[in-house]
Design a binder for these strands. Sequence first.
RNA 1: GGGCAGUUAGCUCAGCUGGAAGAGCAUUUCCCUUACAAGGAAGAGGUCGCAGGUUCAAAUCCUGCACUGCCCACCA
Length: 888
Amino acid sequence: MEKVYSAKEVEAKWSKYWIDNKTFSAKPDKNKKPFTIVIPPPNITGVLHMGHALNNTLQDIIIRFKKMSGFNALWVPGTDHGGIATQSVVEKILKKEGKTKFDLGREKFLEKMRAWRKETGDSILEQLKKLGCGLDWDRTAFTMDESRSKAVQKAFIKLFDKGLIYRGKRLVNWCPHCGTALSDIEVEYENEKSNLWYIKYPFSDGSGYITVATTRPETMLGDTAVAVNPDDTRYLKVSQKTIKLPLIDREIKIVKDFTIEKEFGTGAVKVTPAHDANDDAIAKRHNLEYIEIIDAQGKMINVPDKYKGLSVSDARKAIVADLQEQGFIEKIEDYSHSVGRCYRCMTTIEPLMSWQWFLNVDDMSKRAVKAAKNKETKFYPQSWEKPYTLWLENLRDWCISRQIWWGHRIPVYYCVNEKGEKNSCKPIAAYEKPKKCPECSGEFFLQDNDVLDTWFSSALWPFSVFNWGQNDTNTNEDLNYFYPTSTLVTGHEILYLWVARMVQFGLEFIDDIPFSDIFLNGIVRDKHGKKMSKTLGNVVDPILIMDKFGTDALRFALSQAAVPGRDMQISDENFLSARNFANKIWNASRFIIMNSSEAGELDKNIKPKELADRWILDEFEDLSAKVQLNFTNYDIDKAARELYDFLWTKFCDWYIELSKIRIASTNIDEKKQVLSILIYVLKGTLQLLSPIMPFITSEIWEILNENSKETKIISETIFPLVKNKKEVISISQQEMKIVQDIIVKIRTLRSQTNIAPGLEIKAIFNILDDAKSLGAKNNQGYIKTLAKLNAIEFTKDIKRPKNSAMTVVSGFEIFLPLEGLIDISKEKNRLQKEISNAKGEIERTTKKLENTSFLERAPKEEIKKIRDRSEEARLKIEKIKENLDFLQ
RNA sequence: GGGCAGUUAGCUCAGCUGGAAGAGCAUUUCCCUUACAAGGAAGAGGUCGCAGGUUCAAAUCCUGCACUGCCCACCA
C-alpha cells in the first residue's frame, strides 16, 4: 500500500466493477423487502453540476445503506427530454448557422433533435457512473423512449375520456421568445424598476375625466372598461357615465368591483381583459368584451396603423409620447413591481388569449392533500408539508399544451375534409390515427400540432419507468413489487413543478402514492453564499473536484454539508479536509494491515480484556447505532460527522496509539488480540462509512479480506446489527475519560514547560484519594506511552521534588521533577493561571450551592455534580498553593 | 401582504427533548515520534442577533423586534 491514498485508480476500478458485475441490479424477490428510489431524471441538455452531485450522492448513500441493511434496494436511472429547455439549445445551434427551425420544418428539426440527443444525450449518466452511483443500469429509461411515450399516451387518453382534459381559448402565460404557452409555475416573478403612469380617461359627455394608474400604458388600446371599488366615495356617481378612450376614441364603461383597492393609485383601474389575469377575472364578472392587441410574437395587432406591428416596448414608448403630447398624462411616478418571466429564457411573459389544452386537477389535488395530511407522504424536513398542501389547495387548471416541437405530441385527432379543413366532429384521443370518424364516418384526420408540457411525462415517471401503460392492465410484476417507491430525493425548487404532480398522477393512475418519503435537499452555493451560475462565473465543476480531490472527498464534503432542506456553502476547503480524511482512513488501515500480516492467523473471537478494548468496542457500538439511525432519518450530515469524529479522534488518536505498545509486544497472543479488535472495529467502521465513501472503503475492505473466505465486496455485506443500547455512558467510557484526562494534563505540562517532546521523563503521582486513583494505577501502561514517561511513582504524602512542574487531577497531584530544566518564574505564572481558573469554577459552583431554590428544586444528581466540582476545585487550589509556597 | 428558514469562535457550520459553550478551516507554539507533515501534541479565540418572559437553571422553551435568505399572492 502506498503511503498516500491515490483515488484515481481505485475509483476507476470500482465504478467499473459495480457496473460489470451488476452489483446494484434488483429484481422482484418475495423473500426480500424492496427499497426503491427513482432518480429525478436530469435533462439531456445537462452536464453534471454540483446540485446533481449532491442530489445523486444522497440517493446513492440511501440506496447503499438500505442494501447493506438487507433490503432489495433498487435505484432506477434515466433522463428527461426537457421540452423547451432542450429545444432552445438546439435552436441556438441552428441560429449560429443562420437558420431557424422553420427553415427545416417539423420532421427535419425533430431529426436534428434526436441526433443531438444521441450525441450528447446520456453523457450525464456517464458522469453519474464516475460519481459511483449504484444504479440499476439495465433499467435506464428516457421520458421519450417507446415505453414512456406509450405511458404518456395512455395517461392522456384516460384523462381525456374522463373529461378532465379539455381545450379552450383562455388567457395564458405566453413566452414570445419560446413561442409557446407556459403553465403558471413556469413563470418566475422578479422585481423590476419601472414607472406608474397616471392617464386621464375623459368622460364621453365631456364632463371631465377619471385618472387611472397603470404600469402598462400600451395595453390601453385593448381596454374595455375602467373599474373602481363600489365603496369608493370619490366615484359614487361615475357609474352612469362612459369613457372615451384616448387616442382611439372607443367608448368603454365604468364598472364597480370589490377587488379594486381604493388606496392604490387613484383607485381607478383600466381593464384589459385579453392581456391581464386580474382584468380577465373582472371581465368575467362584468361580462366585458375582450380585445386582443398583442399577438404571439409580442407585436401589436388590432390597433391603429401607427402602432401596428410594433413590439410591446416600442408601442409603450410611442403611446406614452402621444398621450403626453395630447395632454392625457397626468404624471409619471417611479415604481418598482414584479414582472413575470419565462423560467427558461427569462423573456417577459405576455398574458394573452390562446387556444390551449387544460387539465382539471381538482380531484387529484384533493387526494394529494389528503395523502400529505395522513402522512402517507412524509416530508423531510417536515416544514415543506404546509407550503405543499397550500399550493395544492389553490391550484388552477394546468395548461398542458406547448407550441413547440420537441416533446410528446398530443394524441388528439381532428376529423377533417379532403382539403384538410376541420369538420365539426368531436376530436378523438387515440394511440394511432383513427380509421373512421364515429360521427360522420369521415376517413381523414389531422393530429393536433401541440406537444405536452415536459412535466406531464415527468409526472408519470415513478411508474412509467416500470413500464406502466404497455397494455390494458394497470400493473405488472415490477410495479407490483417496487411501487409505491420508498423515497424521492430532490431539490425544493421543483416541489410544485414535479413532486406534487407525481403524487397527483400516482393517485390518479395507480390509485396509490408514488413514494412515501420526500427528502428535500438544499441548494449548493459558493463560498460567499451566492447561487452558482454560469453568468456569475462561480460554478464549481464536480468533475474537476473529483479529479483534484477524489470522488469520495467530494461525496463526503457534500454529505457533511447536507442538512436536510437547507442551502449550503461549499468551497475547496471542504473538499480538502475531506480528502485529508480519506488519507487518514487509508493510513490507519495501512498500519493495521501491515501489522496484521506479520501476526499471521488472527483470533476470530474477540476477548476484550483491557480498558482500551472495552472502551473502543463500546464507542463503536454507539457509533453504529447513531449512524444507522441518522441514515434512516436522512440526517446524512450527522452520520458523516459522527464517522469523522469516531475514526479520526477516537480510533486513530486514541485507540491506535494505545494499541501500539501491545502491537510491539513480544507476546504473540497479546499482539493477535489487539489486532483482532483493531480489525473488527476498522471493518465495522468501513461498512458504516461505505455508503458515503464507497470507493476507498471498497478498496480497503478488499485488501483486508485478501486471504479470508469472507466476501471481498463491501457492498455485498450487511451492517453490524445494532444492539439495543441504553443512552448512558458505559463504565469503560467513564474510566477512559479519566485516563485521557491524565494524559492530556501531563502533555500540557510538558508543552508549557518546554520539555522536549521526545524526552522520556519520570512522573510522581501523589495520591489524595485511593478510590479515584485506581483507574490510573490500573492503566499506567497507557499513561506512560502516550505521555512519554519512563516511570510513574505512586506515593502518598511525599516531599515535593525540587523544581518540579505540577498539576492536580481528580484523585492525585502530578509532579514532573525537572531539576534544572524548568523556569521557576514561568512555572509560577502557569500555576497562578490554574488557580484563577479554579477560582472561577468555585465562584460559579458556590453561587449555585448558596441558592436555596436550587438546592430545593434541582435533581439530587445535579446538586451532587456541582458539589463534587466545587470540592475538586477547592482541593486543586489548596494543592497548587502549597506547591507555589514550595517553589518560593 | 402572507408563510418558512436562518442569526453561536475570523470563515463554514454542529449543539436546541433546558443543567460546566463544540468541530473543521484559518491562527500561535513545539515536533519530520517507524500508519499518516494530506500528520502529531499543546494553546489562543465566543456576554450563542436584540429586548422581555417562564424556570432553581435558558444558546436551548415562550412572546415581541431587527437583519438576511427563500417560497407563495390577481402590488393596477
